[in-house]
Design a protein around this nucleic acid. Structure first.
Lengths: 331, 331
DNA sequence: TTGAAAGCGCTACCAC
DNA sequence: GTGGTAGCGCTTTCAA
């Protein structure tokens, strides 16, 4: 049975115990360079002895800075996000900023409520793959520092992983392998990335004389991909480009279940190159620098928080990585 | 270029605009039942009009409650954790409590620093799969409300996923299939779960007259499993029980690369039944109720925070789920 | 049912 | 280099 928890000492108590003023103790933690080094050492020793830990809300109340940012993603269980989150966390932590993680469960209304509450609990928000309307995003960004990842809204700082380029490469790759009919397995319709990818595929396919059948939208989940495999096979296409690796992995499983060999009978391309997705055979996919995206987004956000009122935009290239799920079109 | 951000109104401003006192506005948000309903409505309207959002640090300063908890995991990129985190988040959110997510990167010292800082930023912590010493954990729990997941420390409230039982079933399953030599592919040595699983495997194997070779420790990462496949094949064992699904998936890939068919030539069992891991063939594994574990941990924690000083322990059963990576021992 | 006032723990200004 | 003091935005007695 846990004992009663001892009260944490306040700054005042430390001051009394160390025989200095509250201001001095405060400076030990905030601006130690203003103090004589020996004072710092002495006060620190007393504070540690007493188990003093600065009380964050009080500091936040005074400074107006909360010392925390939020990272908001649609679905933390989707393996695309952890690397972004991790990188953002690390970057923020280096600056002594804490990271609140929130998950909107792919629900638009939850996203709005969340952002409103986050406004008073954080100094700013990194909003990843937002499902909100352009209008709503622009509006939020006037109320609270906001940086987008994978969402392209004019007037709002953003980091975009340019998978469209990779998708064009993907179509070229398939065309070069003599594929003439390709399925694009669409992701969530409110996803900016899906719009980009789909448009890139359609555009390049037309140029290369490749026919495209679009199936979807789909939630980016394994089961959806698996179920979609049947529909894919019905189209008579010889290759699939999936919205992301999760869907692609599902298609792989669905094809395996249907006895369709990959890449001999069907070629398959994913997107994101999620490390955790190690398929057999290894998946041809488009690789985006997701860690870099997370880190950059935090850099942009901290600049915004520091009052730099400028719109920053970064587009990160995402090239095609050819592995073993693509091969020549069956004769 | 973003415009200058308007200052958020304070409670006082709302009070002035609504022609009531600050106390009244405060009560609208904290204890509306003390007010005349029409007052609540009227003040709310004014507040919404002005875009008022309660300032959290100020509230925290006054009440002594921060209204946030933390969930600490070793590695957010490990797919075992997201379901736990999600469930914890949801449960906390239902109670109007925010969730801070922290990641220790599998580093013990980072874990300590983190917990100290979290002490003043949160009302309590759910510590998942901690790598800390028993001593350190017990000590922390006297300083700050703390609930463990998958770590068994007497005196500290905890939720344990009992994969040991599933591991015993796994050994029985293999023994019934005539396997006589099995590899246990160990996880991190500081992991409580690994200790449990390893002991269960060794114990039951001895009873069933099955020889066990322990290989490891391994970080629970795909590449480690893939590399371990070679060592597994060298032992001459006919089956592998891996610490978790991530390692198992790596072994699957490693065996495929080596031309070893599963389950015909080698049987394979994982642990955790991570939804995202959909392998081909589907993995025989031990399924733990990870969502339930996360939710329960939050329940326990909130009770602790509310001052209920009792140690609560819950063991959740994790049974074996037989799929297609296990078969009769090769002749 | 509502208002006035004190104060949570800390920082920052102004003295010294 | 260090101390005194006011006040951040809110909640919560107490009084009306």
């Amino acid at each position: 049975m846990p004992r009663a928890r001892p009260e944490l000492p306040t700054l005042k108590k430390v001051a009394a115990a160390a025989g200095v003023s509250a201001s001095t103790v405060s400076r030990v933690y905030s601006h130690p360079q203003l103090l004589r080094p020996e004072t710092v050492t002495r006060v620190r020793a007393v504070a540690d002895e007493l188990g003093y830990v600065p009380h964050h809300p009080a500091r936040a109340l005074k400074t107006g800075r909360i010392g925390a940012i939020a990272v908001v993603v649609p679905d933390i269980a989707n393996p695309f996000f952890p690397p972004v989150i991790r990188a953002a966390e690390d970057r923020a932590h280096d600056r002594d900023i804490y990271t609140l993680l929130a998950d909107t469960d792919e629900m638009t209304e939850k996203e709005v409520t969340l952002l409103v509450q986050l406004q008073r609990r954080t100094d700013g928000v990194v909003l990843v793959s937002s499902r909100l309307s352009t209008e709503a995003i622009r509006n939020r960004s006037t109320l609270h520092p906001l940086v987008l990842v994978n969402r392209d809204v004019e007037g709002v700082s953003r980091v975009l992983v340019d998978t469209a380029a990779g998708m064009r490469e993907a179509v070229d790759h398939l065309a070069d392998l003599a594929h003439r009919h390709v399925v694009y397995l669409a992701g969530p319709s409110s996803s900016w990335s899906d719009g980009q990818r789909r448009a890139a595929v359609l555009d390049r396919a037309q140029r290369r004389g490749v026919r495209v059948t679009v199936l979807g939208p789909h939630r980016p989940e394994h089961d959806e991909g698996m179920r979609a495999a049947a529909a894919v096979l019905e189209t008579g296409a010889t290759a699939v480009i999936a919205f992301d690796d999760v869907l692609a992995q599902g298609v792989l499983a669905g094809c395996a279940a249907a006895g369709v060999r990959i890449p001999q009978e069907m070629s398959l391309i994913g997107c994101d190159d999620i490390l955790a997705v190690r398929t057999a055979p290894p998946l041809t996919t488009v690789r985006g620098p997701s860690r870099q995206a997370g880190a950059l987004a935090v850099d942009f956000l901290l600049r915004l928080i520091d009052g730099v009122r400028e719109e920053t935009v970064e587009r990160l290239p995402a090239p095609l990585v050819v592995r073993e799920t693509t091969g020549p079109a069956p004769a």
